[in-house]
Every structure is written in structure tokens, then in C-alpha cells.
Design a protein around this nucleic acid. Structure first.
Length: 907
DNA sequence: CTCTCCCGCCACCCG
DNA sequence: CGGGTGGCGGGAGAG
């Protein structure tokens, strides 16, 4: 307040801004994102050129607008003294909020300092509008300060696909200043980018920009790692655990204690990896977390991951303890990571509805997918579907559920249990009865909404869609698309969806280890909840609404040119060169730690990998140093080359078909990539949807609705289908025949959950009916997609997991992806191998029908590729600020504030 | 109220 | 050892 007063006075006399200000607000100065108003201090000098004098900087941040700090433009704005400017200043002085708001504006502006003109114009514009805007907008919303936006700005500075020859160095100090934020924020961004190898650390304060060239490869590697680590299984087991927990609570603990075993397994897994459970700082690094997080998406059939689930998995990976505080912290980090990944267009937040099924704990606030969007997607996928229909279905279903109370929000009272639980509770322990349960469920995973990411990327991100023919994102659609003409009917029978009996569902879920969500939802489907835990009730089967924290992978994550053999090599070459360029000791080091692992593995022959699987803990690969060592051991040969080497994913794939089968998985590169890659998708991004052909479009999300077999009472199943027709087919006809009338629902509704499959269903899903008999219980996945969730299980399976018959015969089916809950699966690393016998006999194992992604699949569709929004390569001025400055800034706070950036261009 | 997640303290560890 | 990094979690904005 006082400060404000002073400010006002000062403002009154605009011409003489008080330098004193700088000192006045010391505190504020420290805050991040606060922009220093250099202009006041030295109004005319462009900020860039000026050295930053932190001591002088003022905290005040008025923003750039009026006077925008930024450099610039000196005078233009200068005009601060224009009436408008004055007004602004006054306002700003008077209202902190306004000040902030202005700041934000600045942040958003394009960062390119270079475009002075641009900047200037913007500023001018801003100035003109500002007054008005100020009043209106008031402070920048918190969102404006988000890491995501900051990241976008950051990315806007560099070309997504820099020329191989060009080497761009990133000065953290400079960037921080440029963006007007504290360096700390930049670390967050850079760490995530580094985890994906978009940048690499060259030296202190210096990072090298690599761009997305190697992203596809990186993603493939991550996918592989994720598979090896059995993340998918972990997710499944996590869910299972929760289910078990539920049972437990109810005193119905499963006899087998499958859950326990699962847990145990998980533990086992993690332990190795994380050797010292040490919470080694590194283990917890954002970089690693980021990689793991990405792995989850890659491995997920649905490509949808909830932060809650991710957090749990990550926590488990490093430690067994799952206390609330840790969980909370993890989630916080995941949000940070998710924001960056979102900026990269690699993932997208998926949220359709405001209610969540299982949990209700969260109300979704943001809606990324509008009904319209969904419609578009649907249309693209299935031409037949009218968008209207689609939307109606979706909406209706949601509404219906809502009406039915499916989506209930958990009463606050119940929710509160969370806090209660926060005590160091043992994992899943809930103190609260029902309430607790609901929570648990929630955490597990909530929802899922299979959605096509690609399309949305454009909207969501609003960035321009970039298309790079060669480097486009992976075409692989997240969900398999069913051929239009397939048996599946697009019949929106929403109501059917609701009809599942709880018990059945529950049984399924429990027995089969379906996702918790699924199980829950199913259970809840039954209107009676009583039998079930209260919390659970609400959900309906099919429609899962993702919680706010739900994110989906955009596209397959594959970017860039892929896999054709030839192309791959090329990319490698480029990578190699890039690597070479950047091969500084520091960079190497890190790379070695993290990256190397990935790369090396890639090259590793399948056989080797297998052996190695055991060695490496799930997490180990990701882990930096430690892992590196281990990796060395494991993969000695790779090491030297890693840098140059790119991966040979292809070979691997071939070796491990099963593993890679899932769509989305990197795997199939050979096939998939080539397929996809070859398809010309360029620019699809622009109209991703339209492409449609429905069949071809991979990315769509579709859900197939399956009619329930007799046994299931009314259990309707939706299958996500998104594959292209071709893809869908199981390679060998392994697919079980599904004769199901299917409804196409947005995949989102289904989520990653398993679908129920009933033998009764007659029609074979795939054109070529698989030889696969219906195994009773078994999950199968839709053909074509790896992503496809495996779903259903035969009753038998339900009953006795072990008994379930898998068809061992098909190795493919067995892919790791199977949702199978059984923890056991996870154990079996080998499982990945197609041939591995391990699967056989695997209890309860889920059978994978096919790996959909099957490489073999012919057409892959292309996907739209998502790229970064901004491709501007702007170069930055490179002036790096003196480090000391930066340092000061830290202390002093704000050096950062300098905003040169203010360039106005908001994009 | 819960979900997000900004912000910045302060420990860690590198150079 | 100074200082760059970055884990961590309080606390507040947003819905």
C-alpha cells in the first residue's frame, strides 16, 4: 500500500519516474515474473543493451505496456507519457493486479526480441489498447503465468527443426531475462526438454538446442523403456490394487491376494531400479520424471494418463511409500511436466466434462474438447457418423450419466477424507470407509477419455500447425479405427451403456484386473451402489470423464521422419551430427546418463534386451547416473556410439513384435513408421479431421460399443476403435471375433480401460477372424491398435485368472501391453518377446489379440502431426547477461525482470 | 472446496 | 567454496 501511494505520486509526475522505486519494493522484486520496469529507470534505453542493474531495478512491474520495458522501442512508448500511458501507469500503480496483468501481457508477447518492429508495433498497439484492456482484464490470470505459456514462448525462440548444421545455444540467463522470469522457471522447462533431448546442457548456463529431429527416436526409446519397465502393467496393477483394496475393505479381499502380489511385484520392480531408494536427488529429477511420464503415455494403450496414476507409479518406482504428501508433490511436478509437454504438443489435456466419474473429486475446469470437437473427430473417424450423432451420443451419454448420478461429485465431506489420509498412511489405506474409497479410486485413474489427440492439438494449442513431411509426428493413431463398414455399427445406443450390472462389472474388473476405473465404473453402473462402496458407485461404465488431470498423448508421439529404414538412418545421421555438435563434456555427461541408456538400448538386440530386462530395473534405465553405469554393463557395446547411433528401433521391433505391437508404440516402427511415415500426411495437421476417411484416420478416437453377451447382462462394452481398417485386422487373425454391434463413442469415454469382451459376441472383429478362439477370459485388444485397450475378459478369466487361457500360441497377443492386471505379467519381462514361452500359462494373463500396431498393418494412417506451435526460430539475441547478474537476480530478485521481451506479439 | 501450479527457499553438487 | 541447479512444498489463484 504504501508503496502504491508512492508510486502514484511518482506516477503523477510521469516524466520523472522515481528510481527509488526500485528499492521500494524489494520484496516484489524477488518475485518471479515480475517485470522490472526498466523503462522507468531508463526509459529510453533499450533494455537489451543495457546491462541490467539489479539493484536499480524496480520491482514494480508495471508493465510493459505502457512503458513497456522492453527495450525498446524506446520511445515509442515512451510515450509513456501519453495520456494513455499515464493512465495506465496510474492504474498500474494503483492496482497491483493491473500491474500483474500487464506483466502477463508482456509475457505472452512473442518473445522474439529480434523483431523489433514487431515488437514495437505490438507495443504501440498495446499501448493504445491497454487502457481499455486494463480495466477489463485486470491482472493476468494465473494461467498467463503458467509454465506452459512460458514454455511456448521459450520454444518460439527456436526452430523446431533446426538445420542440422546450425547450432543454437541457449543461455539460461538470457532466456530468463528475455522471458521475464526467474531462471528457476527456465530450469523447469529446460529439464523437461532435456529429457526429450530437445536440448542438451553444454555448460553452465548454456544449453544447446537440438530441436525435434530426434524426438521420434527418443519417443521410441522411451516407449521401449516403458514397455520394459512394464509401466502399463503397473498401471493396471495399480488399478487392480485399488480394486483389491476395495474388496479388502469390504472384507472381500481376494483370496488370491492378487493385489498383494501385485504390490509386491511392483515393489520388486522398483527396488532394483532404484537402488538406494535413495531418494537420490537425481532420481527425483524432473528430467527423469518427465521421461517416465512420457513413457506412461507411450505405453498406455489409450494414450491417456491421469496425473494421479502417473504420480503413483512414479512414486512407487522410486519408493514404496505412497504418502499423501509425496503424492501431492509428485503431482505438482507432473503438472509442471505436463505443461511443458503440452507446449510441445506432445500431450494434451483431455477434459470433456465437468464431472468425473469415479471420482468426483475433481471438477474439471477446463474443457479441452468441446462437443464440437468431438463431433469433428467422430466425423473424421467415421464418416458415417454424423457429427451430430456423435456429439449427441457423447453428450447424451454424459448427460444421462449425469442425470443418473453416474457422475456424482463426491460430497465434500467425503473428499475430506483425503486430508485425513494424508497422514502417512500406508498406501491405499484409507481411513475413511466409503469416502476413502472413492478417493482411492479416483487416484487410480480416473478417467479416461480416449480422444484423438491430433486433431485437437491444433485447437488446443492454438499454435499453428506445422507440418513437416518428413518429420511429422507419428501417424499412428492413438486408437484403432474400425473400418467403417465393419460390423460395428455406429449406433448410438447410449443407454445401453448404462445398463451394466454392477456386480458383473465389478467382478470383471476385479477378476481381470481391469482398470479400476473400468471396474468401478462398471460396478457403479449398476444403480445400486449399496453393495459397492459408496464412492464408487457413481461411475458408469463407458463414459469416463477424465479428470482434470487427465492428459492424452498427442499423436503417437512420433514425430519426424520415421522409420523407414532408410529414413531412419538418415535421421540418425542427423542426430549423430547433432550430437556431435553438442558433444560437450557436460552434455555428454548428461546424455550419457539419461540418453545413453535410451539409445543404447535401442540398438541392443532383442535378445540382449531380454536378458537385460532383468537387470535393469524398470526405472533404472531412466535413471541417470546409476543407470548409466548399469547400462554400460548391460550394454557395453552401445556405449561408444551412442551418440552417433541412433537407434535401431526397427530391428528391435522386429525382434520384439509383441512389445511393439501396440499402436502408438514406437515399435512397429518398421512397419508402422514406414507406413505412417510414408503416408503423406503432411499438413494434415491442418485438417486433421477431415481426413477422414474415416477409415484411414488413425487418430481418431472411437469407441466401439459392444453388446454384452448374455453373461454380462447388459454389459455394454465400448471398444475403442480407432484403427484403420487395415490396421485393425489382426495379423494372423488372431483377433477374436467380435461380433459386436458396436457403438462408436468417443474413445474418450472408454479410456484406457479394458473392454469387456464376450465370447458370445459373434462377429469377428477383424475381417479375418482370428483363429483365436474366444478365449474365455482374456483381454483382447482391438486389432489394429496397440492402443486398443484390451478389454474384455472371458468370464472364466474372471473366475480364475490363472485358469484363463491365454493363447500362448500367440505371442503377439501377449504383448506386454495387455492390461492385464496381473502383476505377474509385469514380472515377465520376457513377455515382451513374442515367442517367449513365459506368457504361456500366465495366469490371468490377458491375451493380446494382436499387436495391433502391428507393424504389419498396412495402412497406417497418418497422423496429423503435431508440432510445436511456433516454429519461429527466432534467434535470440544472444547477449547473455552476465552471470552475475543472474545471480544477483536471484538474490536480488529479479534481474529477470527485464523484460525485453515484451515484445508484444502475443501470439 | 478442490484442483492447479506459481513462487521462491534452500539444499545439493558441480566446477 | 561460490554459485548454478533444481527439489520441494507453501500457499493462493481459478473454477
Amino acid at each position: 500500500m504504501e508503496v502504491n501511494c508512492l508510486t502514484l505520486k511518482d506516477l503523477i509526475n510521469p516524466r520523472q519516474p522515481r528510481l527509488d522505486f526500485a528499492t521500494e519494493d524489494g520484496q516484489n522484486a524477488q518475485k518471479e515474473n515480475i517485470f522490472v520496469d526498466r523503462s522507468r529507470m531508463a526509459p529510453k534505453t533499450p533494455i537489451k543493451n543495457e546491462p541490467i542493474d539489479l539493484s536499480k531495478q524496480k520491482i514494480f512491474t508495471p508493465e510493459r505496456n505502457p512503458i513497456t520495458p522492453v527495450k525498446l522501442v524506446d520511445r515509442q512508448q515512451t510515450e509513456p507519457w501519453t495520456p494513455t500511458a499515464n493512465l495506465k501507469m496510474l492504474i498500474s500503480a494503483a492496482s497491483p493486479d493491473i500491474r500483474d496483468w500487464e506483466k502477463k501481457k508482456g509475457l505472452f508477447r512473442p518473445i522474439e526480441n529480434k523483431d523489433e518492429v514487431f515488437t514495437d508495433s505490438l507495443q504501440l498497439r498495446v499501448v493504445g489498447d491497454v487502457a481499455v484492456e486494463k480495466f477489463e482484464k485486470r491482472r493476468p490470470s494465473r494461467k498467463q503465468k503458467s509454465l506452459g505459456l512460458l514454455c511456448q514462448k521459450f520454444l518460439a525462440r527456436y526452430p523446431s527443426y533446426p538445420l542440422s548444421a546450425e547450432k543454437t545455444t541457449i543461455s539460461l540467463d538470457e532466456v530468463a531475462v528475455s522471458l521475464g522470469v526467474e531462471r528457476r522457471r527456465i530450469y523447469d522447462i529446460v529439464n523437461v526438454l532435456e529429457s526429450l533431448h530437445l536440448v542438451s546442457r553444454l555448460a553452465k548456463n548454456q544449453y544447446g538446442w537440438h530441436g525435434r529431429h530426434s524426438l521420434p527416436r527418443t519417443l521410441r526409446n522411451l516407449q521401449r523403456l516403458g514397455e520394459e519397465q512394464k509401466y502399463e502393467e503397473q498401471m493396471a496393477s495399480l488399478q487392480q490394487r485399488e480394486l483389491d483394496l476395495m474388496d479388502y475393505k469390504f472384507g472381500e479381499r481376494k483370496k488370491d491376494g492378487c493385489a498383494d502380489p501385485h504390490d509386491q511385484q511392483l515393489l520388486d520392480f522398483s527396488e532394483p531400479d532404484c537402488p538406494s531408494s535413495s531418494a537420490n536427488r537425481k532420481d527425483k529429477s524432473l528430467r527423469i520424471m518427465s521421461q517416465k511420464f512420457v513413457m506412461l503415455f507411450l505405453v498406455s494403450k489409450t494414450k491417456i494418463v491421469t496425473l494421479d496414476v502417473a504420480a503413483k507409479i512414479l512414486i512407487e518406482g522410486s519408493q514404496n511409500v505412497l504418502d499423501h504428501s509425496k503424492f501431492k508433490t509428485k503431482v505438482r511436478r507432473l503438472y509442471d511436466i505436463a505443461n511443458v509437454l503440452t507446449s510441445l504438443a506432445l500431450i494434451k489435456k483431455v477434459t470433456n466434462v465437468n464431472f468425473t466419474i469415479l471420482e468426483q473429486k475433481r471438477v474439471l475446469s477446463s474443457t479441452y474438447f468441446t462437443d464440437e470437437e468431438l463431433v469433428d473427430v467422430a466425423a473424421s473417424v467415421l464418416p458415417e457418423l454424423k457429427s451430430e450423432t456423435y456429439s449427441k451420443v457423447h453428450v447424451c451419454a454424459a448427460q444421462k450419466l449425469a442425470r443418473r448420478g453416474s457422475f456424482n461429485r463426491v460430497p465434500a465431506s467425503e473428499r475430506s477424507h483425503r486430508k485425513v489420509n494424508s497422514e502417512p498412511k500406508p498406501r491405499y489405506n484409507k481411513k475413511k470407509g466409503a469416502g476413502g474409497r472413492s478417493r482411492e479410486l479416483v487416484e487410480c485413474g480416473n478417467s479416461v477419455v480416449p480422444v484423438v489427440s491430433f486433431y485437437y492439438r491444433g485447437k488446443a494449442l492454438d499454435g499453428e500447425r506445422v507440418t513437416l513431411p518428413s518429420s511429422s509426428l507419428d501417424p499412428t493413431p492413438p486408437f484403432p479405427v474400425h473400418p467403417v463398414d465393419s460390423e460395428y455399427c455406429v449406433n448410438p445406443l447410449v443407454h445401453q451403456v448404462f445398463s451394466m450390472p454392477q456386480t458383473d462389472l465389478q467382478a470383471f474388473s476385479t477378476q481381470n484386473g481391469l482398470n479400476r476405473q473400468v471396474g468401478v465404473s462398471l460396478a457403479s453402473a449398476a444403480s445400486d451402489v449399496e453393495s459397492l462402496k459408496p464412492g464408487l458407485l457413481a461411475s458408469q461404465p463407458l463414459l469416463y470423464v477424465p479428470s482434470a488431470s487427465l492428459y492424452m498423448l498427442c499423436g503417437s508421439l512420433r514425430e519426424g521422419p520415421l522409420p523407414e529404414p532408410g529414413s531412419e538412418r538418415d535421421s540418425r545421421g542427423s542426430e549423430a551430427s547433432a550430437a556431435a555438435l553438442w558433444s560437450t563434456p557436460a552434455a555428454q555427461k548428461r546424455l550419457g546418463e539419461e540418453r545413453q541408456l535410451l539409445e543404447e538400448e535401442e540398438e541392443e538386440p532383442a535378445a540382449k534386451r531380454q536378458s537385460r530386462d532383468y537387470e535393469d530395473g524398470p526405472l533404472s534405465l531412466v535413471m541417470p547416473k546409476k543407470s548409466a553405469d548399469s547400462s554400460d554393463v548391460a550394454f557395453p557395446k552401445m556405449r561408444g556410439n551412442r551418440a552417433s547411433v541412433s537407434l535401431e528401433d526397427m530391428p528391435l521391433n522386429s525382434h520384439l513384435p509383441a512389445a511393439r505391437g501396440v499402436w502408438g508404440k514406437a515399435p512397429a516402427h518398421g512397419f508402422i513408421s514406414s507406413e505412417w511415415g510414408s503416408l503423406p500426411r503432411n499438413t494434415e495437421t491442418e485438417k486433421p479431421l477431415q481426413e477422414n476417411e474415416g477409415t484411414t484416420e488413425p487418430s481418431l478416437l472411437q469407441c466401439l460399443y459392444v453388446q454384452p453377451p448374455a453373461g454380462l447382462n447388459g454389459l455394454n462394452v465400448l471398444l475403442p476403435g480407432s484403427q484403420t481398417p487395415h490396421a485393425m485386422r489382426p495379423p494372423s487373425g488372431q483377433l477374436p471375433p467380435l461380433g459386436v454391434p458396436c457403438m462408436v463413442l468417443p474413445s474418450s469415454t472408454l479410456g484406457p480401460f479394458p473392454v469387456l469382451y464376450s465370447p458370445t459376441m459373434a462377429g469377428p472383429v477383424s475381417p479375418a477372424p482370428g483363429t483365436v478362439p474366444n478365449m474365455g477370459p482374456g483381454n483382447f485388444r482391438l486389432p489394429g491398435l496397440g492402443s486398443t485397450p484390451h478389454l474384455l475378459l472371458g468370464p472364466a478369466a474372471l473366475v480364475n485368472p490363472n485358469s484363463s487361457t491365454l493363447s500362448p500360441a500367440d505371442p503377439q497377443l501377449q504383448g506386454p501391453h495387455s492390461l492385464n492386471q496381473s502383476p505377474v505379467m509385469s514380472r515377465l519381462h520376457n513377455a515382451t518377446q513374442p515367442t517367449s514361452p513365459v506368457y504361456e500359462g500366465h495366469p490371468g494373463s490377458v491375451v493380446k489379440l494382436q499387436q495391433s500396431p502391428t507393424p504389419g498393418t498396412p495402412k497406417s494412417t497418418r497422423h496429423t502431426h503435431c508440432e510445436t506451435f511456433f516454429k519461429t526460430p527466432g534467434s535470440l539475441g544472444d547477449r547473455v547477461l552476465g552471470r552475475r547478474e543472474s545471480k544477483q537476480s536471484q538474490n536480488a530478485s529479479s534481474a529477470q525482470r527485464r523484460l525485453e521481451i515484451p515484445s508484444g506479439g502475443a501470439h
